[in-house]
């Protein structure tokens, strides 16, 4: 499967990718994007099977990315990896069509629990 990791922080993209490997998902192809706008382009061009997106990014936020994808009819499985998971944000994410939120800091165990059903 192909996974798009969107985060404006290079180090956080690297941590997410490293944690995917540590969680046992090392055989999947990874595509990266530094903001929501580029993530939108890469969803169109790369056609990932899963999007793991930060919420707070320049140019286009994660929730704006999700809304843009769904408005365009794209139903790619989408989850947030974000530094806070308030009830308000969870409600916005779910209303927008996201699967769930993984809060930072996370562990490999968290990734296994949340992503096993999707990534196998």
């Amino acid at each position: 499967m192909k996974i798009l990791v969107a985060d404006d922080s290079r180090v956080m993209r690297q941590i997410v990718v490293r944690t995917l490997r540590q969680a046992g998902f090392e055989d999947h192809e990874i595509v990266e994007a530094p903001d929501g706008a580029e993530a939108k382009s890469k969803v169109d061009s790369e056609k990932p099977d899963l999007v793991l997106s930060d919420w707070n990014m320049p140019n286009m936020s994660g929730i704006e990315l999700l809304h843009a994808l769904r408005a365009g009819g794209n139903t790619v499985p989408f989850a947030f990896v974000t530094s806070e998971c308030s009830d308000e944000m969870i409600a916005k994410a779910e209303a927008g069509g996201a699967l769930f939120l993984i809060s930072k800091p996370f562990t490999a165990e968290t990734f296994r629990e949340r992503l096993s059903d999707i990534l196998g």
């Binding site: 922080s9 180090v11 974000t82 530094s83 806070e84 809060s103 930072k104 800091p105």
Partner: peptide
């Protein structure tokens, strides 16, 4: 360092 502040700040904001 910015991401460290972001993660700490996000959790504090919660």
């Amino acid at each position: 360092l910015g991401e460290l502040a972001n993660v700490l700040g996000g959790n504090v904001k919660s």
